[in-house]
Every structure is written in C-alpha cells, then in structure tokens.
C-alpha cells in the first residue's frame, strides 16, 4: 500500500528531525508528534521527545513554565509553530484576521510563539492547509516576527515550512522562502497559485520522497499505538 498524505507529512518531518537531540511538540499537533516518535525510533532512542498533553511523553516536573525555561537554555533543538496566517518574511499570526483588536476572525491566541520563535534554533512552520488565505503577502497581526534586526538576541527562528503541498526552506539573510520539494500528486504551479507571497523556486523541483517501507511499518505499527495515548482519534484514522 502506498503512503497516505498524512504518512508523507510524517515521513518528511521525521527526515527533518534526523540528527536533532531534543524536540518539543506543542498541543494539537498529532502529525509532528507522530513524526518525532518515528525519528526517535530511527535514531535508536537518541532523540528526546516531549509531547505536551501526554503523560507518557512528558518529563517536565516544574509545570508549564519549564517548557520555556528549557528552551531558553538551548535544551530544545526543534519546535513546531503554525498560524492562521504566515507571510513571505515568515511572520506568523495566531491572533486573528482583520484589524486588531476587533478582528473579523479571532483565533485562540499567540500561545508561546513570541518567545519560542526566538530561542529555539530550528522552528518548523507546519500548516496543512496551503491556500492564499493562510499564506498571505503580509500578516494582519505579527504574533512573532520571522526575522529580527541586528542586536536583538535571537539564537532561533524559522527553518522550514511544511504544508499539505510542499516543503520550503527559509533563508534568514534574504528573508525569503525557497521551494525545496513538492509532495506527490501536486505541482509547482499549484503551490504558486495557492501562495500569496513570492518565493524562490529552482528550475527543477524534486518530489517529496514517500516514506520508505521501514518508516511506513513504524507509523502503522508501534507509533500508531504510542501516539494513541495523546491523540486517539488521529491514531484510529492512521
């Protein structure tokens, strides 16, 4: 059986996590959570995976504040952020669409983004919905900026952007995304048409590889069982 869309995303994230030592998964993130558990299995356990909301995969004993303290000390290599809007300079908006504060559409809020985007070295932006309403020219509200001027303490920031259509990389110096791969069944033209900002595109864009059989077997076996503790409905649909 070939890989599903979800399995392709899990496989793509697991590849990005190769070589990392520590990853924290925020709330409501079953695909990054599954990918982190796959990456840990592939690394023979040499990846510390913390899944917020899971008892089994959380080793914090100092409350919610410890997530941020740990990240501030450089003990977290990778974190995932999303957004109701993301623009071409990697600014993210988790607050709402329209003019703040009386926005037309209100989203939950910025959570820890305005901090973790600065202190976690490799932030992966993950948003499955790849449409012009998400990927806008300029966000209506900056929950967290993609880049900072010289002199601002910022060991971290955006590294990759993974969507339901493709994978892009962020260039901090040029403040631009570049397309790295297109998922099977999709095209560069489709990504251009569904992205409200300009990005760099090489002459030939590779296809995002499908997970190899070993990774697929992990996803459909032990990882499905492990992620079910935190995301039972997601695991049942895998």
């Amino acid at each position: 059986m070939s890989a599903s869309k979800t399995e392709i995303l899990i496989g793509a994230i697991a590849r990005l996590l190769e070589g990392s030592r520590s990853v924290v998964i925020g709330n409501q993130s079953p695909i990054p959570g599954s990918a982190a558990l796959v990456a840990r299995a592939l690394a023979g356990g040499a990846l510390r995976v913390t899944i917020l909301g899971s008892r089994r995969h959380t080793d914090f004993t100092n409350g919610g504040v410890e997530t941020f303290d740990r990240a501030a000390q450089g003990r977290v290599d990778v974190f995932f952020l999303g957004g109701g809007q993301i623009d071409g300079a990697a600014n993210i908006n988790l607050v709402g669409a329209g003019e703040y504060p009386r926005v037309d559409v209100r989203w939950p809020g910025s959570f820890g983004s305005a901090y973790l985007y600065f202190v976690v070295p490799r932030v992966i932006l993950f948003r499955e919905e790849h449409t012009p309403r998400v990927f806008v020219r300029k966000v209506d509200f900056v929950s967290a900026p993609g880049t900072s001027p010289p002199g601002v303490y910022r060991p971290g920031g955006p590294w990759k952007l993974l969507t339901g259509l493709g994978l892009l990389a962020f260039d901090q110096a040029r403040r631009r995304f570049a397309l790295e791969s297109v998922h099977p069944g999709h095209t560069v033209e489709e990504i251009v048409a569904n992205t409200g900002f300009e990005f760099d595109c090489p002459a030939r864009v590779p296809t995002t590889p499908e997970p190899d059989p070993r990774v697929l077997a992990l996803i459909r076996g032990p990882i499905r069982d492990e992620i079910a503790e935190t995301y039972p409905k997601f695991a049942a649909a895998l």
Partner: peptide
C-alpha cells in the same frame, strides 16, 4: 477558538490583553 471569546473580540465588549505563555 473559544466562541464567546471570539465574539467578545469582534464586538469589543471585553478588554483583551493578548500575551504569550512565558510572559
């Protein structure tokens, strides 16, 4: 999103001080 929170934001009926968790 909390639906009544979202409605209050649209109507401006509650003062919302947006923050970030570690703050």
């Amino acid at each position: 999103t909390g639906p009544r929170f979202a409605a209050a934001a649209r109507e401006g009926s509650v003062r919302i001080l947006d923050a970030t968790c570690p703050a």
